[in-house]
Design a binder for these strands. Sequence first.
DNA 1: GGAATAATTAGATGTTTATCTTAATATCTA
DNA 2: TAGATATTAAGATAAACATCTAATTATTCC
Lengths: 84, 84
Amino acid sequence: MDRTYKALSDPSRREILRLLREEDLTAGEIARHFPTSWASVSHHLGVLKDAGLVIAEREGQYIRYSLNATVLQEVLQHLLDLAS
Amino acid sequence: MDRTYKALSDPSRREILRLLREEDLTAGEIARHFPTSWASVSHHLGVLKDAGLVIAEREGQYIRYSLNATVLQEVLQHLLDLAS
DNA sequence: GGAATAATTAGATGTTTATCTTAATATCTA
DNA sequence: TAGATATTAAGATAAACATCTAATTATTCC
């Protein structure tokens, strides 16, 4: 759970999650939404993946990212417990 | 919202919130729950206060901390939006 | 007023983190 | 197989962070 909250604590990473809420995207499509380098975005994607918040699947030349709704649900529940 | 997520990303701070969920506590009572120095706990309390997650009120010699349910509710809603 | 208690602030230190540039890996296409 | 594109990994750097000890502020009680 620790890595999950850490992952959520960066605005760029939360923006990535917001993008993925709409539709699955390749790393390149995600990177194009940010002014920073592709390497930096790739780093954020790695953090999100480590935290289980996103799922990465290679599709030929591309790597497609999608939200992991299950883990997001778990964080929500955890935060709900904290708030109740 | 940024400072709020940052505040939540530390396990000691989440533990403080958990303690405060049960009852309001003075800084010293909180500090006694941790193996680290009082200064370190005081730092965490400052971060939580900056984030609006807790409220500090002096009571004579002591400073009493309590959860700010409103802000916790706001984070929950924000995370809910992210997950929906 | 002065000692004692509660809590924070200041200053220092080692670690983690976000970012960059450059290099490496994987895949596709001609 | 060679070149092109997509993505990540490596190495470097500056900023942020958690923690410590020591000093400071605020309050109480004698």
